[in-house]
């Protein structure tokens, strides 16, 4: 632990600027160093996981609203991309055939608008009630997509224009991840970020001190949905094919939650670190014990909950961390508070 602490201090200190520059240089040059398309794809997927986990962490970790259906925004982004760029309109009613760069922001905006619509009712719910409402939203959306066959291709899915360019994908995702992580870092230091943490730690107290809690929660939710939607849109384009069962997978949300928990819920660097470890671990497990891989992930989850509830960075002393248990018990503590106040 002492060693880890020292490494961490090195990275987080200002002197760590050189470590950062080195890391950025390595990441920027990586495609030139490796000729293997598979290695680039792996790295791109890791960047994607870091990106979506960081966004999940904005609403789940920093604001304290544990979203068990966050992949719905990924799915909406993916489907908007699919519908907007599809070239073969034989089963699809509406297809403006936009280019990738035109469709990308629209997909993000679509996810964001959906976050506004669904957030207004669900963000009133506390603790596990919100989590379950979002899980329900996710499952419902998968079925809606399946039913809207004329637009979405239903169960048969959509074919996107096949464009294979691993190097371009790599750089796109690298920069996108950089933007998202930098934004999270900035938010954490802003008044907005302070207010989000205050809402997480005591929402009633925050409201009584003049914070418009509803507005803050919805803005955080919309930001998290926008970038997750863009990530989903990118994924659809890169994958060149989407259907409800490859897009709307529960495991996408589980990975976001686990990355954040493993690294440290509510911290800026927790999700990137957690995603990195999770990805390496998954790779290892997939390669060696394919049949056991879900089992091993489950065991890991239990391990985190029992032994490092505040994640690695939380355990190393980052005060903005919290644990899933605390967040999920919120709906139940509220009553007690008022009871206490009666004394």
């Amino acid at each position: 632990m002492g060693f880890l602490r020292r490494v961490w201090r090195l990275i987080s200190a200002n002197g760590g600027i050189y470590s950062w520059l080195t890391l950025i240089a390595i990441l920027a040059l990586y495609p030139l160093l490796t000729p293997s398309g598979a290695a680039l794809l792996t790295a791109t997927q890791l960047f994607m996981l870091i990106t979506v986990s960081s966004n999940w962490n904005l609403i789940g970790g920093m604001t304290g609203y544990v979203d068990f259906g966050h992949a719905v925004f990924f799915g909406i982004g993916a489907y908007l991309m699919g519908i907007l760029v599809t070239v073969v309109p034989d089963y699809i009613l509406f297809s403006p055939q936009l280019g990738f760069w035109q469709a990308l922001p629209l997909a993000g905006l679509g996810a964001m608008v959906f976050a506004l619509l669904i957030g207004v009712p669900t963000l009133r719910l506390k603790g596990p009630y919100f989590s379950i409402a979002m899980l329900g939203t996710f499952v419902a959306m998968r079925e809606i997509i399946r039913l809207l066959k004329p637009f979405t291709g239903g169960g048969e899915g959509l074919d996107l224009p096949p464009v294979l360019n691993r190097t371009r994908d790599y750089y796109f995702m690298l920069i996108f991840m950089g933007v998202v992580v930098a934004l999270m870092w900035w938010i954490r230091r802003s008044e907005f970020g302070h207010s989000l943490l205050a809402i997480r730690e005591d929402e009633v107290g925050a409201e009584m001190r003049g914070i418009d809690t509803t507005r803050h929660k919805i803005i955080a939710f919309m930001i998290a949905a926008f970038f997750t939607g863009v990530a989903g849109a990118f994924w659809a384009f890169q994958n060149t094919y989407i259907d409800p069962d490859v897009v709307f997978i529960e495991q996408r949300t589980v990975e976001m939650v686990m990355s954040s928990m493993l690294g440290g819920l509510g911290t800026v660097w927790g999700p990137p670190l957690g995603a990195f470890i999770l990805y390496m671990l998954q790779d290892l497990v997939w390669a060696n014990f394919y049949n056991l891989h879900l089992f091993i992930l489950g065991v890991l989850l239990i391990f985190i909950v029992l032994f490092v509830p505040e994640g690695i960075i939380g355990t190393l002393g980052d005060r903005s961390s919290t644990s899933l248990g605390r967040l999920l018990s919120r709906g139940f503590n509220r009553g007690e508070r008022t009871m206490e106040e009666r004394a």
């Binding site: 900035w186 938010i187 230091r189 802003s190 008044e191 907005f192 302070h194 207010s195 205050a198 925050a206 001190r209 003049g210 914070i211 418009d212 507005r215 803005i219």
Partner: peptide, 17 residues
Amino acid sequence: LISRQWRGEGLLQMLRP
């Protein structure tokens, strides 16, 4: 600092330290 005077709440305003 959680409790403070409120000088408007544009997102860009809130995003400042």
